[in-house]
Amino acid sequence: MDFSVLTGNYETFLHGFYNTILASLLGLVGSFILGTIIAVFRISQVRPLMWFGTAYVEFFRNIPLLLVVFLFYYGVSSLVGVTLDGFNAGTLGLAVYTSSFIAEAIRAGIMAVPKGQSEAARSSGLSYLQTMRYVILPQAIKLVIPPLSNQFINLVKNSSILSIVSGFDLMYFGDGIATDTFDTINTYIFVAMFYLVLTLPLSYGSRVLERKLARHD
């Protein structure tokens, strides 16, 4: 294997890798928070919230990620007049798209916590929100870790969508290096390795966490 592509473009690769990490972290945190809120909306007794949550999930889950990113890249500037650069539009699109899947995973987790748990909590005088926070969500999160880690791994890989809107991520620079050096195969092999550096620990970590949390069941 020829390492000259890597050694010759080391800083460019790292620059892209850094942006991919940043987009992934922002996307991860953003999609988790958004997804949790939407999941709570979807199971809410308040009708408008439930409708909003359902519409959100069905809309963003059922159109291509690329279109969601375009929505933020082109759409937001023409609708609201605020122009987002490729990195911001891409990361935002990624977070919103992934949050619809995360909302479904979390909702399923919440529904899987036995009804007696919320009855015990509510009958002791805890409010709905306190019951969610102290009793239901901590149990739901355990059930949700495997599907959630799948979503996070997908998110890291999907961050390559930033390359389409000039988001200066790993894939974007990889494309550039491949075009410049004509060493397409080696370039993309290294790009793939950089992605693996992120995704493999993620899937290993989720397995460890799952085992740790399952201790008392």
Partner: peptide, 18 residues
């Protein structure tokens, strides 16, 4: 507020497992 003054014990205990 009403529920503060009413304790309840269930058939399946419903302790919080976590």
């Amino acid at each position: 507020k009403v529920r503060r003054d009413i304790g309840m014990v269930f058939q399946h205990f419903n302790l919080y497992p976590h």
